[in-house]
Design a binder for these strands. Sequence first.
RNA 1: GCCCCUGUAGCCAAGGCCGGCAAGGCAUCGGACUUUUAAUCCGCAGACCGUGGGUUCGAAUCCCACCGGGGGCACCA
Length: 481
Amino acid sequence: MTDRRDIPYRFEPTVTAAKLHADHNDLAAGESSGVGATVAGRLMLRRVQGKLCFGTLDDASGSRIQLFAPAAVTPDYEEFCALSVGDWVGASGEVMRTRRGELSVQVEDWRLLAESRRPFPDKWHGIADTDTRYRQRYVDLWVTPGTRRAFEIRSAAVAAIRAELAARGFTEVETPMLHPIPGGAAARPFVTHHNALDCDFYLRVAPELYLKRLIVGGLTRVFELGRIFRNEGLSPRHSPEFTMLELYEAYADYSDMMVLTEDLSAAAATAATGSTEVQVGERSLDLTPPWRRATMVELVSEFTGRELPAVGGADSAAAAASRREAERMGVATEAGWSAARILAEIYERRVESQLWDPTFVCDFPVEVSPLARRHRSSDGLAERFEAVAAGRELANAFTELADPDEQRDRFAAQEHRRRSGDSDAMTTDEDYLRALSYGLPPTGGLGLGIDRLIMLLCGAETIRDVVLFPTLRPTADSGES
RNA sequence: GCCCCUGUAGCCAAGGCCGGCAAGGCAUCGGACUUUUAAUCCGCAGACCGUGGGUUCGAAUCCCACCGGGGGCACCA
């Protein structure tokens, strides 16, 4: 008799369901292969028909295999029939195909590997409640088609990016997550406290300033692929903790970063899905390089149907014209904004979400780009771009500002905004300025939102579908439903 | 923080406007069945209708508050 409590300490499957299907493709219905196999996985379905029992085993290999258990062959037949949907089972026996043509393992021996003491979700409807899907991902991964696939795509894409960067001579590094001064992005940080040092730390909002210190230190091609944290609202595109690829390349500028963005995205897509064509909702989108390159001025002008000036201080005629246009489009502006700043606001509010095909939106106002170098030929603008696809920002990059004096001025401007109530404005990082004063060569830097990229590759509408355990409000019992 | 939608058995879900014993299906449990594919057939059981208050002879249903989830806004790359 099989005692349900008698769980083995180890088990050795000899083959996966996927491999069985591949190996026995030519086995005819009603035929036996003469080959034995041992499989293990979770029982997803069970059909008892008197002296015959069928089970469907999912072994997470991307396929499923039927267990064929005749009473005359299967030991402890009654107990086998009593298995629950959701139980983990190991079974071995001859590989055969039933009369109806289903490839099966005839159960000549079997072990219960773990019992599911909770009823497994409905085999037909699955989990309809998205809340439960995210809170109990361990169930969702088995039950919801596509969930596991999304994370396989994620894994493959990330591996491809690492491989691509390694091939280009980039060094992967890890910089602090606990920052004494939050910096590198305009974002509100999480605050935490170190007891022994008795001081507050901020969870990093970007690794940027540390990575550029490394360029100063001679790591001329560096990248970090890791989690960053921003204390902001949640949305289908925003998670409080998310994964960012940041890389810096000495002697390069933002044009080089465009090529790199295209190449990395295409490599990730090809490795993960076999194609650079992705499907998002009803529409498809092609990540094949090169992507469209357009300036923010061009895009906004295109969208509004009139030429808008990018140059001009807050009191200029240009700014006044832009302000009127913003009002016409229902975009709120503030008194002190330059023409370029107003342009950027219109872009963010009205244009970005309309850009479907991959596009490099180039040349942002200097005021909103405190770490980017001034444009070599356009006044008031910085050499910065954002890559947008499916109406969502995918990457942000610039030719890095290397001059310590100008960087100090930019920090000062941020401090000024901070004092007038902008809690996301940056604070001056003296050590970073010191690093710059040792000399930062011309450098291109790129930040690529990994979750956003994976969303594209999976066709996911929400970032929660590409994060295994997305941030949710904790429940009283932390997840029970 | 604000607005809209939403919460009925382990799972899927009807009912809600117009108050009157809380449908049905899957799973569980018992029975039949040696080639099933959401197996089928028969039977049993399972619900403080998200929580608390109010209106009413009577509330899943109407009202208020709170809690969870989704979407939008705000915030934000």
